[in-house]
Every structure is written in structure tokens, then in C-alpha cells.
């Protein structure tokens, strides 16, 4: 369904080159939920943003449902994006639009008729459990409700693939759980393939089928979730696993991420 081959992206900053992602290859089967996990700065956000070309990869290939996404420009790229939903950590709802109009936005853009939009938005509102919030503006919603609107908006135009960029990182644990359940329901009922990135191991363990572990822009571990978590080989996963215990000195490097974990643990 999704095939990424040797994808690379380097940022050129005044202080030098930063390899955000380096030679990354992986595949996702139709209907699967792939979790990409790593510490901040591991390149997972850049990776997921390359999939719908919010970021421009320097090299490599992305193929979604047989269509090569890399290389598309202008209208064909916009048409491809209409079939790739995306939700964000900061929700990114339009404050000028009511909940109803936020969900209608992608349908307006895709040229749906007024009648079709009405019907589709009503379906989506009940799918995400916000039937009573239709005429409310985003500023009046809680974080969890905002993300539900984000999900409804992302799913409106029947995408084949849903990208989740730290979709639960701004939410409390209980709300996170309810959003994850919603994503799982969408995956099971609608068959939407999901790629989600997170720095929370619980998220991966609770809903993902496959997992990709990233460190410094590279994939260091990948496979089925149960298998990878049973025998973690990467430093990242071992550190995640030990967050509540003191970390041994020889596991620490100079990287800020590790020191962050260290200070959490210590």
C-alpha cells in the first residue's frame, strides 16, 4: 500500500547540514497501523511529513497505492493529497470555521456538491461523536474534541492513508486513550491504513501492528510490534523500556535526547 525506498532529507542550516532522515526504507500493508517511534530529533516527523510532501525529500521514492508521490507537482500532487488524510499534534483547525465547516473544508476543495457535503459531514460528526458540536467554533472545544474534529476533517474525502503527526502528544492520558480507540475503530471499520509517529511507547503497544524505531534519521529496528517489543535490540527501545528505572552509565551518550531520558529517570 505504502512503499518508501531509500528516502533521505538533509536540512541546510547556518550552523551546517543536518541529516534529518537518511536512507530510510519501509513498507506498510493495506489496512495496517504502522507506528514510528523515536526520541525528539530522530527524524520521525520529517519522515511522515515527506509522505504527503509537506517536506520535500532530497532523494528516494514514495509509492502509495501504485502511485509515485515523489515527483508529482501542481494539480496531480494536490489530487494525491486529497487521498492522504493528516492529523497534527496542534490540531490545526480553522478558527474561522465552525466544526461543521472545518469538516466540510476538504469536501469543498474536492468539489463535492452542497447536498453531498451535508450528508458526509453528518456521518463524520456521528463517527467521531460530536453530533451536538456542529455549530461550535474550535476555540470552544477541549483538546480531545479538537482532535476528533481533526480526524473527521482528515477522513472526509475517503482517504486511503491517514498520517498522524504526534496526534496524541498534546493530550492527557485518558483523552489519548479515547483518541487511540477512535483511530483503531476507523482502521477496523473503514480499512484506512494508518501511519502514526509518537514518542510514547504505550501508543505503539496499544494500537499498532507494525513498528519502526528511528535514531538519528535512520531506521534501527522494524517488525511486528509483539516481536520487536519482546526482544528490543535498539538503544532507543531499551531506553524507553527503562524510563522508570535508573539508566546505566554505559548506555548514555552525549545526545540531548538521552540526557532528557536520564534526567527523567534520575
Amino acid at each position: 500500500m505504502l512503499k518508501v525506498t531509500q528516502l533521505s532529507k538533509t536540512y541546510h542550516t547556518p550552523s551546517g547540514k543536518i541529516k534529518a532522515i537518511c536512507d530510510v526504507s519501509f513498507q506498510v500493508k493495506k489496512g495496517d497501523i504502522l507506528g514510528i517511534i523515536g526520541f525528539s530529533g530522530a527524524g520521525k516527523s520529517t519522515l511522515v511529513r515527506c509522505l504527503n510532501r509537506l517536506e520535500e525529500p532530497d532523494a528516494g521514492q514514495i509509492v502509495i497505492d501504485g502511485q509515485t508521490i515523489t515527483g508529482l507537482q501542481g494539480k496531480p500532487l494536490r489530487e494525491a493529497r486529497k487521498k492522504i488524510g493528516m492529523i497534527f499534534q496542534q490540531f490545526n483547525l480553522f478558527d474561522s470555521r465552525t466544526v461543521w465547516n472545518n469538516i466540510a473544508f476538504p469536501l469543498e476543495v474536492a468539489g463535492w456538491s452542497r447536498e453531498q457535503i451535508k450528508e458526509r459531514v453528518a456521518t463524520l460528526l456521528s463517527l467521531v461523536g460530536l453530533d451536538d458540536k456542529s455549530d461550535v467554533y474550535p476555540a470552544q472545544l477541549s483538546g480531545g474534541q479538537k482532535q476528533r474534529v481533526g480526524i473527521a476533517r482528515a477522513l472526509a474525502n475517503h482517504p486511503d492513508l491517514l498520517l498522524c503527526d504526534e496526534a496524541t502528544s498534546a493530550l492527557d492520558p485518558r483523552t489519548t486513550q479515547s483518541i487511540l480507540e477512535l483511530l483503531q475503530k476507523i482502521n477496523q471499520q473503514m480499512g484506512v491504513t494508518i501511519v502514526l509517529i509518537t514518542h510514547e511507547m504505550d501508543v505503539v503497544q496499544s494500537i499498532c501492528h507494525q513498528v519502526v524505531v528511528m535514531e538519528e534519521g535512520r531506521i534501527v529496528e522494524t517488525g511486528a510490534v509483539e516481536a520487536v517489543f519482546r526482544r528490543p535490540s535498539s538503544a532507543t527501545l531499551r531506553l524507553f523500556g527503562q524510563q522508570k528505572e535508573p539508566i546505566k552509565a554505559n548506555q548514555l551518550t552525549n545526545r540531548a535526547d538521552y540526557q532528557e531520558v536520564n534526567s527523567l529517570a534520575g
Binding site: 489530487e79 497534527f88 490545526n92 480553522f94 478558527d95 476543495v109 476533517r153
Partner: peptide, 25 residues
């Protein structure tokens, strides 16, 4: 920036982003 990115991700054209996102927001 995030709102503009959301519109881009949803397949909106530059003209649609100006008319439906930038000016209303």
C-alpha cells in the same frame, strides 16, 4: 503555519488557501 499546512495537506490550491484560510483566519 500549521493551519496553512493543514490546508495544503488537504489538497487545497494556493488560491483556495488565500480565499478559504488566510483571509478568513
Amino acid at each position: 503555519r500549521g493551519k496553512i499546512e493543514a490546508a495544503i495537506a488537504l489538497g487545497a490550491s494556493p488560491l483556495e488557501i488565500v480565499g478559504k484560510v488566510l483571509i478568513p483566519e
